[in-house]
Computed example of a mutant assay.
Amino acid sequence: MNGLIKAEFRKIFTTHLWWALLIPVVVLSFLAGWGGTEFGQMSIIRQMTGGQDLPTGLLTMSLSTNYVTVFAALLGALAMTGEYRHKTATTTFLTANPRGAVLGAKLIAYTNIALIYGIANTLFASLGGLLGAGSDGFGEFAQWLMVGGAGILSIVLWTLLGLGFGAMVTSSVVAVLVLLGYVLVFESLVSSAMSSSAMSWLGDYLPGAASNGIVSNLSVPMFVSDVAGAREPMVSETAYRLLHSVFGGSYGFPWWGSLLVFAGYAAVFVAGGWLTSSKRDIT
């Protein structure tokens, strides 16, 4: 197993994929951290709260995470489909026994790369937030750690989901189109359609909503608590929903619930990838 893991790291660092996808992660994280604290809804919220220093960095860290998770999913999916596109899957599966060990090695290797993505997202979103909101924009250090850690978890889970999905479809083109189509278009349409029906509660259990909630359902209550203080119980549901509409997540759904839901999706795709890889003809 150690040999397979080392081989996966060699594959990763001798190709351009990992750092090519890391570039937009860094750029988007910084822009979300800076732009989110400096522009948009933040000026309105400052006016409503009398211009006080606000922990807006907590919110924009969740915003940046929700933007960049798609690149983590693409990283995982393309890592697996690339084996089939370049015909390296044949040699890999024939020399590794059992086949499941190959996927296991990839899961371990790409979890480590996903940690790099997650840490980069947290650091660059924080740097942008420091420029936009100053050092008072992140609340307490423990809060920054919790939100940053939740973001890292979200990125790791998206990477694992992408690996499993890539193992199932094997085509790089299909993997990219389906992931981007779902994240950017399809779920929004489904969520909008359900919002006006009796099934609106299911929206919190969709993959994208669950992923967003891992960070946003943690950061929004922290933000409200810091701003409202002892008056927090008096904060209206409308205020929460306004913040969630901008920064993701949903009112009243716990962040750990979102984590469990999305971890379930990731587990299903990893299991599906393992099953299809173990049975597929690779000659």
Score class of each variant (00 low, 15 high):
Gln52Trp: 00
Lys279Arg: 15
Ser188Glu: 07
Met168Ala: 13
Gly36Ala: 06
Leu163Phe: 04
Ser126Val: 14
Gly50Tyr: 04
Leu184Ala: 11
Ala79Lys: 03
Pro221Cys: 06
Ala230Thr: 15
Asp281Asn: 14
Thr49Val: 07
Leu160Phe: 02
Tyr182Gln: 04
Leu180Gln: 00
Ala32Lys: 02
Val235Thr: 13
Phe223Gln: 09
Val169Asn: 01
Phe165Ala: 14
Ser154Gln: 15
Leu75Ala: 13
Trp201Asn: 12
Pro207Lys: 05
Gly264Gln: 05
Val224Trp: 02
Leu259Asn: 01
Tyr240Asn: 08
Thr60Met: 01
Gly151Trp: 08
His86Trp: 14
Ser192Asn: 13
Gly51Lys: 01
Arg280Leu: 13
Gly33Leu: 03
Gly128Ile: 11
Phe253Arg: 04
Ala167His: 05
Ala20Glu: 11
Val246Tyr: 10
Glu187Cys: 11
Ile119Leu: 15
Met234Val: 11
Leu242His: 13
Arg85Ala: 14
Ile214Glu: 03
Leu22Lys: 10
Thr276His: 06
Tyr205Gln: 11
Val220Phe: 05
Ala77Lys: 02
Met48Ile: 12
Ser258Phe: 06
Trp158Ile: 01
Ala79Gln: 12
Asp204Gly: 15
Thr37Ala: 10
Val183Phe: 04
Ala101Leu: 15
Gly203His: 00
Asp226Leu: 12
Thr60Gln: 04
Ala193Lys: 02
Phe253Ser: 12
Gly132Lys: 05
Met168Cys: 09
Ala89Ile: 15
Met168Asp: 03
Val174Gly: 06
Ala210Phe: 10
Glu237Phe: 00
Val27Asn: 08
Ile45Gly: 03
Gly3Pro: 02
